[in-house]
Each structure stands twice: as structure tokens, then as C-alpha cells.
Simulated scan of single mutants.
Amino acid sequence: MAMTEKQPYHKGDLPVLLLQAAEQELAENGLERFSLRAAAKRANVSHAAPAHHFKDMTGLLSALAADGYRRLITAQEKRQAQAGSGKVEQFVALGLGYIDFAEAHPALFQLMFASEKPNRHHPGFAKTSLAAFAKLQDAVFALYPDEADADRRTTLLMTSWSVVHGLAELIISGRAEGPLQLSSRTPDERDAMIRAILLRVHEVKS
């Protein structure tokens, strides 16, 4: 919802306010219509404020995507904290958190993974996206502690990522609803369905 009254904030809070406004603008109007001016208007600050803090639209979107990766990790860690400590349970929890985030923030998810607008060499983007990838790598490799073949480990890692990311994309686009009927399932049934898909890749027992 657009801000229509002047919002009190401390100077140090302005970048956070702008990121929140940018995400709202992205979610409601899409990337094609996104602009610094629109984000500033939504935040109820001067049109020059985003450029002062983020230089240009690329800088703002890169910072927003970096924040998205931090929140993706938080969503995954929340699921992991609720799951058992076993390596299979932790791997599944990581995937469930990935899909939770995609469903909750579809426009941001697309910005992070499918858009060329962010600068992937932006320090924040690079750091947080690599941290998210490292979590997946650690979880997959933990399933195969005795696998010494580097190419085999990489194949397993990329297969896992392809499946969870592809499933997230299919869910948020609505294309998975027909075959999976997730909206008519209980949360436990939904999780069980996703779990079965994730584990099928690794031929591990649930």
C-alpha cells in the first residue's frame, strides 16, 4: 500500500524504507514498470533519495535482491530449526524453506533468479547469493559423505538445485496446481508431497 503521509524515520532507516517500498512496487506493478521515481513516491521521499543511497536503479534492485537472499536463508533456517537433526531431514527442510520463500515473495524471487536487472557482481548480491548456494551444497554433500568423485558430487548438487528451483517456479506460476493440487492439501500433506519429490532425486528413503 502506498504511503500517503510523511513517514517519520531516522536518517539511517531510509535505505531500509526504500528497499521496502521497492519491493512493494515490484510486487504490485512488475519489473517493467519499475523506476526509482516510483519507489521514492511509494516511500514518500524525494525522487533523488534512492539515487543518493543506491546510485541508480541497478544499485537499488541489486540491494533488494541481496536482501532477498538473506531472507531466503532465514526462511530455510526456520524450516531447519523445526526439522529433525538428521541429514535427510535437514536437506528436505532446506528445500521446503526455498519453496516457502518463493511462494511468499514471487516477484522478489524472480528478481533474484530470473532477471538481468541486478548486478550479480554487486558485493551484497554476490555475498548473499553465494551463501545461499553454500547452504544447498553443504546439505547435498552431507547426504553423500563417502562420495569422492567431484563430478558426481557436482551432478548431485545441480540436480537438487534444478528440482527445487524448478518446482518453486512451477508452483508460483500456478502450473503445478493441476497435477499436485497443493492448495487443497493440508500443510502436512503439502510438505509430504514436496518431500517425496525432493528425495526421489537422491533415491534416499524417507
Results as ranks from 00 to 15, higher is better:
residue 5 E to M: 10
residue 8 P to C: 00
residue 9 Y to A: 04
residue 12 G to K: 13
residue 15 P to H: 04
residue 15 P to I: 02
residue 17 L to E: 05
residue 20 Q to C: 01
residue 21 A to G: 05
residue 22 A to S: 00
residue 31 L to T: 06
residue 33 R to H: 13
residue 40 A to K: 02
residue 48 A to R: 11
residue 49 A to T: 06
residue 51 A to L: 04
residue 52 H to C: 07
residue 62 S to F: 06
residue 65 A to H: 00
residue 65 A to N: 00
residue 69 Y to T: 05
residue 69 Y to K: 01
residue 69 Y to H: 11
residue 72 L to Y: 01
residue 74 T to A: 14
residue 74 T to C: 08
residue 75 A to V: 02
residue 77 E to C: 06
residue 80 Q to E: 12
residue 82 Q to D: 10
residue 90 Q to N: 01
residue 91 F to C: 02
residue 98 Y to F: 15
residue 115 S to R: 03
residue 116 E to N: 15
residue 126 A to S: 11
residue 126 A to Y: 11
residue 128 T to I: 09
residue 130 L to V: 11
residue 134 A to R: 10
residue 134 A to T: 09
residue 135 K to D: 14
residue 146 D to M: 08
residue 149 D to P: 06
residue 150 A to I: 14
residue 155 T to F: 15
residue 158 M to K: 13
residue 159 T to Y: 06
residue 163 V to N: 01
residue 164 V to C: 09
residue 165 H to E: 08
residue 169 E to N: 14
residue 171 I to M: 01
residue 174 G to V: 00
residue 174 G to P: 04
residue 176 A to Y: 05
residue 181 Q to K: 15
residue 182 L to Q: 06
residue 182 L to M: 04
residue 183 S to K: 15
residue 183 S to N: 15
residue 184 S to L: 13
residue 185 R to F: 11
residue 188 D to A: 15
residue 193 M to Q: 11
residue 194 I to F: 12
residue 202 H to Q: 01
residue 205 K to S: 14
